[in-house]
Amino acid sequence: MTQPTRSASLHAPSSAPAGGMPEVVDQVALARLYGEPLFAMPTDLYIPPDALEVFLEAFEGPLDLLLYLIRKQNFNILDIPMAGVTRQYLQYVDEIRSRNLELAAEYLLMAAMLIEIKSRMLLPPKKTAEGQEPEDPRAELVRRLLEYEQMKLAAAGLNELPQIGREVLRAQVYIEQSLQPRFPDVSVSELQDAWRDILKRAKLVQHHKITREELSVREHMSIVLRKLQGRRFVEFEELFEVARGVPVLVVTFIAMLELAKETLIELTQAEAFAPIYVRLAYQPA
């Protein structure tokens, strides 16, 4: 909403040229002012009356103006002297009507409300049907003023808080590692699908032999680490010895999970549904 303003004009005195026409050099004018040739730079300065305005006071709306008048006179907001406040309010409205009639419409509405309240206070009060005392005509206006003042103070408090871009700026740090491609993390469901595919392939080449073999998870952890040693990436399927049967595959898979839990290996995938690769975890020097 545009803020109404009370303005005052500043006039700069103008002085007439002391002499006649300045000396003309080769009949060449420096410029033209209102169609007239200007042969020399002016020695004085003239400012039109409406060229400069000084803003004295600005208000956000009728309630802001009314609250300003009450606080400026140190009136009790719960017992507003309507005659004095209405008179000062109408003086301000008459001033802005001469400059911006469209803006003054909202202020005229509040002025009508003030005059109505003042008129109702001059009439003798009438009791209600229940025999109770009538409500003070100023009660609704007081309620609106108190709510507006509360919101205005809250807005001023928020404005005093530090704001990004005004009191503080975000720190920006250039990190070269951010330029490196970041591979998406491997989800549990994708790891399960890859494991099921390994089991299906193992069942196709399995042999019906009944044997008892003691398998060590720690031993297979060492086997996996040896296969990864010196290699940048190893495909997930290459770490399993399908020909040795399902028990060895299970122990190898458990060994890989233990290594991943101890952050000794990393599982990466370039994109969704792409092959899963295993590599040794990065160890800083």
Score class of each variant (00 low, 15 high):
1 M>C: 03
5 T>R: 05
6 R>A: 07
7 S>D: 10
9 S>R: 14
9 S>P: 00
9 S>H: 11
9 S>I: 07
12 A>Y: 08
13 P>G: 06
14 S>E: 10
15 S>M: 10
15 S>W: 11
15 S>E: 10
19 G>M: 03
19 G>N: 10
20 G>D: 08
22 P>F: 05
24 V>C: 02
27 Q>R: 11
33 L>W: 06
34 Y>T: 04
38 L>H: 00
39 F>W: 14
40 A>F: 08
41 M>I: 13
41 M>A: 14
42 P>E: 09
44 D>W: 00
45 L>E: 09
47 I>Y: 05
48 P>Q: 07
50 D>R: 02
51 A>S: 14
56 L>S: 13
57 E>H: 12
59 F>P: 00
61 G>D: 08
62 P>Q: 04
62 P>C: 07
64 D>M: 03
66 L>W: 00
67 L>I: 01
68 Y>N: 12
72 K>H: 14
72 K>F: 13
73 Q>V: 03
75 F>S: 08
77 I>Q: 13
80 I>F: 04
84 G>W: 06
84 G>F: 10
87 R>Q: 14
88 Q>R: 15
90 L>V: 12
92 Y>S: 06
92 Y>M: 01
93 V>M: 08
95 E>N: 05
98 S>E: 08
101 L>W: 03
103 L>R: 09
104 A>C: 06
105 A>R: 10
105 A>Y: 04
110 M>I: 02
115 I>H: 05
115 I>F: 06
116 E>L: 13
117 I>R: 08
118 K>Y: 11
125 P>V: 11
128 T>V: 05
132 Q>T: 13
132 Q>A: 15
142 V>P: 00
143 R>S: 13
144 R>P: 01
146 L>Y: 01
147 E>L: 10
148 Y>V: 05
148 Y>R: 09
149 E>K: 12
150 Q>F: 12
151 M>C: 03
151 M>F: 09
156 A>D: 15
159 N>Q: 15
159 N>W: 07
160 E>W: 02
160 E>M: 08
161 L>I: 07
162 P>R: 06
170 R>V: 15
172 Q>T: 13
174 Y>S: 07
175 I>V: 09
175 I>T: 08
179 L>K: 12
181 P>Q: 11
190 E>M: 08
193 D>Q: 14
197 D>A: 12
198 I>K: 06
201 R>V: 08
201 R>I: 02
202 A>L: 03
203 K>E: 14
204 L>I: 09
205 V>G: 00
211 T>W: 02
216 S>C: 04
219 E>I: 01
219 E>A: 15
219 E>Y: 09
220 H>I: 01
221 M>P: 03
224 V>W: 00
225 L>I: 03
225 L>S: 01
228 L>F: 06
228 L>P: 01
230 G>Y: 08
232 R>Q: 12
233 F>A: 05
234 V>N: 01
235 E>V: 01
235 E>A: 11
238 E>N: 11
238 E>D: 15
240 F>S: 05
240 F>L: 10
241 E>V: 09
249 L>R: 02
250 V>F: 06
250 V>C: 02
253 F>P: 00
254 I>M: 13
255 A>C: 05
256 M>D: 01
258 E>Q: 12
263 T>K: 15
263 T>G: 07
264 L>H: 11
275 P>A: 10
276 I>G: 09
276 I>E: 08
277 Y>V: 13
278 V>A: 14
278 V>Y: 09
281 A>N: 13
281 A>I: 06
285 A>T: 04
